[in-house]
Design a protein around this nucleic acid. Structure first.
Lengths: 240, 240
DNA sequence: CGGATTTTTTTGTATGTACTAAATTGATAG
DNA sequence: CTATCAATTTAGTACATACAAAAAAATCCG
């Protein structure tokens, strides 16, 4: 009796690893996820990842081609999405019901996602009316393993001056960075307009809630926005 | 980065062990808690307990006299009570807010108590109006480390026919046994009268909610009752 | 008091998670 | 095509948790 292991019988590090593979696969457009990518994401030595990956491959949750990275199996994807659902429902519950700030819930959810049962999470979700997105704008997987990965918004950092829209999602887990963004008024649901971009990777100036704000391009890269429609006014080449 | 370890930096098994020492000390009227007692309580081999006890003693949480059992230090007591508070607040929240049955919450709380932060638990407690007891009638330690261990009720199994009162607490964690008691109408807060006791350790007949119910003495030993006052009518020797 | 029994600890083993350092494989550039 | 460099895996170590079997200590009883 080492640990309780409520849901699929996986340990917390194993669930974290699957979640990381899922997220890196998504970010990398389906390319295999390398050991180094996982090590960085999990703040682990590469050798530790190799060991974990072997165990998970042995359980049929990922396919591992030596020296060439890993891919989730169908079973691994389902498992990762269940963990992700627990994480995001918990975050939403903490913010909506218990009054936590959206910048502080990640760490708490990161622990609770491994010990909360699916039943508890389903009750939380029901109490919230089965929300579709969490406080960061990330989609919440459904009980049956589905997920709608949003309408493929663009990063704030990719827009050209004059473009405007609504902030859909902030893809960052660090409390300090989120608190900073929040202090600028940059949070999911807020309307904005990009006023200007300083050259050579300089800061962007964004109007949010009536006020002009400056934000660095690295931070802005994690802010996903949606625009009113396809006839948005594009001035200048914003691709990069 | 093996595990998150939210509160005192203790692992889940270590917290469970401290909690068990606390509970066994209480049940044993302060006598030192033996390795075997702990092994039974934790469903562990005695050898495993010895190892855990050494680590905890090294951290100053318990005093360990080889071959003579352990005692919580003041620091250990505080730590145990914080874990106990988390457990009981979580149980109460699950029952009162999320609609779990009082018979099923123990297992869920047993896991969550190790990953929920004190801040989360304080918010849950506040949402409940800082309740004094959990769904089983057990007292909830306060934020500052205090606990009021109830008015020292008597076990239902110790009463004599004709005695009556109110069920204060059910000291059992097993879901099946709790569900059975619940089906008999035996739960905290319910008024009762002991109608008769079969001889030679036979079943007790108890009137609860107007209906006569039979209950074995082992189960009844875990039902703590309080009586109207000290001039309760005692008929016959009820001791033992 | 001293042997028998019980309890506890020690010893040795296993697993999962982590690390560092060394070896290996793959990719790249000349 | 090979030397080099980066990425990855292997090897060896450590710690916490668990176990069973053996040894040691305490207790009990005649």
């Amino acid at each position: 009796m080492t640990a309780p292991l409520p849901n699929g019988g996986l340990t917390a590090p194993a669930e974290d690893c699957l979640k990381a593979v899922y997220e890196l696969e998504r970010a990398g457009a389906g390319a295999p996820v390398t050991t180094n990518d996982l090590a960085h994401r999990l703040t682990l030595a590469a050798a530790s990842v190799t060991g974990m990956v072997k165990r998970l491959a042995g359980q049929g949750l990922i396919d591992h081609a030596r020296y060439h990275g890993v891919r989730l199996t169908e079973q691994g994807r389902r498992t990762a999405l269940r963990t992700l659902r627990r994480h995001r429902v918990i975050e939403t519950y903490l913010v909506s019901v218990l009054g936590f700030g959206w910048d502080t819930v990640h760490a708490e959810a990161e622990r609770l996602e491994h010990s909360a049962s699916d039943e508890l999470v389903d009750r939380m979700a029901a109490a919230l009316g089965d929300p579709a997105v969490d406080p960061h704008g990330a989609p919440i997987p459904t009980r049956d393993g589905g997920i709608v990965e949003g309408p493929a918004g663009r990063a704030l950092s990719e827009l050209a001056p004059g473009e405007h829209g609504r902030i859909a999602r902030v893809e960052d887990d660090d409390a300090a960075r989120l608190r900073y963004l929040d202090s600028l008024g940059i949070r999911p649901g807020v309307e904005f307009e990009l006023l200007e971009r300083a050259p050579f990777g300089g800061p962007l100036t964004v109007r949010v809630e009536g006020a002009p704000r400056q934000i660095g391009p690295q931070l802005a890269a994690h802010v996903v926005v949606i625009q009113p429609s396809e006839h948005s006014l594009r001035i200048g080449g914003a691709e990069h």
